[in-house]
Design a protein around this nucleic acid. Structure first.
Lengths: 338, 338
DNA sequence: TCAGGCTGAGAAAGCGTTTTCTCACAGCGT
DNA sequence: ACGCTGTGAGAAAACGCTTTCTCAGCCTGA
């Protein structure tokens, strides 16, 4: 049966042996420590190259107490918003030589806590998107997860920066836009009940209502995906509203599709807005009026905040707010009841 | 200034001390080894709970020689196809307690090799999507990356399973579909030049041409995203083709949007097909006829193949082919020149 | 009663690095 | 010529865990 197993992975010892030096010296050379005689250093580099030696990251991690990896917890990897955050985060982190470990909690809020803990222990830091987690639990968990940055959540733990999108502001501006077009019956197709960002939208609408007593604002319960929008067509038509604020672009696209099937014209009969400005929003027919959230940029900012924390730099602003920007496209137009 | 630093992370030694036992015993208890006296085990568990002890994964990884993590290299995280693979992979791996580390090569083929190596060293296995990497380089790299599974690539290294989508078959069926609708001038909006999957499509079309000498098939160079499709409108109109096979759904959607701007009706004037059946495909107007690739399932299959490799089980089928399924929707219709 | 076999837990040896500690040797000044 | 400083490299400890090795103590059977 011959040799025991497949050729064992080559390690620092092999290089040391081949170069005729000690482990320590090899390590020094590999890490660019200049207290090594150039001739010896060269010999080590040669040996390393010949053996095609690459330091074992696990060993390094243990010795250095860092993994050069960060974790991100997302509630649903199928959602373009989180995909974009992940992307922005990953790109930015890669610039600094960090990798990203992903943990998808599948919208199960009880999983969020466990996954976050596990991910955190494997990584040097954490980005937490946990829209469903209760405030109390978040508060309790926060210290043990440091360094961490929160997306669309905040905590009293001062060391934890928050990156927030001002959904309230965004939805108000969209509503304003509809009012300017002459709409006086507005419907908000609301998102998941326990979603923190949905709550912000609802709050924004309350403010809006206060400033526009003449405008009727209805609320229809819903979710956060295509089907939600598609299935809401009947309710929307029954409401008599002419300006529809969908929870996000996905819901808006579902609604658009449903309205199209019914022969309802957009924006002639009904105006529809989305939220997020996902890449697809500009390619719907008609192109979707929405509030653009610079979400990839937010992912990048998440990394910069986290990096500051990891490096133990001062964290200038604990909460960083991103303002959505209304993008007027073809899905909104003058009210025919004006 | 008081104490040195923030309270050091608690480790196995602390638990051992508190429970009045040795490191070894704590380890045994934590790993469910039953050769420990139940009373002592209970004491250890108590101590662990009180201290809220969680084993350090890096230490474990070093001792056990495994990380319970797999890596995936993708060329572009912005592409829905890779997002879906990532998602399927991540969900499936999570079922078995594995996490996923992502590496985005940003379409730079030289990065692919380096990233793959780095990711592999940190993980127990690798899923490689490297459509741009040269065959020779892949061949050379493959052994050092084992265990690994390839997506849409293959290698002579027998230990490396491949998961392939039969793009050639899919594009043929789409072309057939157009022919059945009476189209005799077909245009293929081709993908990135060095893309392996694009080559498969082109091969498929060659076969198709052989079987349909009467049908004219043109090729227009392009890319793989929205803009490609949008920018190709002029070339498409100039070609005189009435049935357009877009490289993928993104290109098709861009094209749809561009045609709409020009007032060209789909499918009355021109029929358009996509490829992949991304979630958005059914919500375009008109809904996109495309070839559905069970891509999330492919991600899941990737995990199962990789798991078999990691566990050193027999690998039954080295190459696993997924057949796309034509989904006829509204973007294709009878040719007006029939 | 005592040898031999089990059982269960501590001691210690890894796992693959980095880094501190230590020391040999060369070079310098007096 | 001798001690002192400084340089460069090896020895060994540390990182936090798992697992083998070892051995004390008990139990069984002759």
């Amino acid at each position: 049966m011959g040799r025991k197993s497949t050729t064992r992975r080559i390690g620092i010892a092999d290089v040391a042996l081949r170069a005729g030096v000690s482990h320590a010296t090899v390590s020094r050379v590999m890490n660019g420590n200049f207290t090594v005689d150039p001739a010896i250093a060269e010999r080590v580099r040669e040996a390393a190259a010949e053996l095609n030696y690459q330091p074992n990251p696990v060993g390094r991690s243990l010795a250095l107490g860092k993994t050069d990896t960060i974790g991100i917890v997302v509630p649903d990897l199928a959602n373009p918003t989180f995909q974009a955050i992940l992307r922005g985060l990953s790109m930015a982190a890669a610039q600094d030589g960090y990798r990203v470990l992903i943990a998808d909690s599948s919208e199960v809020s009880s999983e969020e806590a466990i996954l976050a803990g596990e991910a955190r222990r494997r990584c040097d830091g954490l980005v937490l998107c946990a829209p469903r987690m209760g405030d109390a639990e978040l508060e309790e968990l926060a210290p043990s997860l440091h360094p961490m940055v929160l997306i669309n959540r905040s905590t009293t733990e001062t060391r934890v920066p928050s990156l927030m999108v001002d959904y309230g502001q965004g939805i108000q501006e969209l509503a304003e836009h509809l009012v300017e077009l002459g709409h006086s019956r507005i419907v908000f197709l609301s998102g998941p009940e326990r979603s923190a960002s949905n709550a912000l939208r609802v709050q924004g609408l309350e403010k809006f209502k206060a400033g526009h007593p003449d405008v009727e604002v209805q609320l229809i319960d819903g979710g956060s995906n295509f089907d939600t929008g598609h299935d809401a067509v009947d309710a929307v038509l029954a409401s008599g509203g002419t300006g529809i604020l969908a929870f996000n672009d996905l819901v808006a696209m579902g609604l658009l599709s449903g309205l199209h099937e019914r022969g309802v014209r957009v924006p002639e009969d009904i105006s529809v807005t989305g939220f997020d400005d996902i890449p697809f929003a500009r390619y719907t027919t008609p192109p979707l009026t929405t509030a653009a959230v610079p979400i990839t940029e937010l992912g990048g900012q998440a990394w910069h905040s986290l990096r500051a924390l990891i490096r133990n730099e001062d964290t200038p602003n604990a909460v960083n707010t991103f303002r959505p920007q209304v993008e007027v496209r073809g899905s909104t137009g003058p009210s025919k009841n004006r």
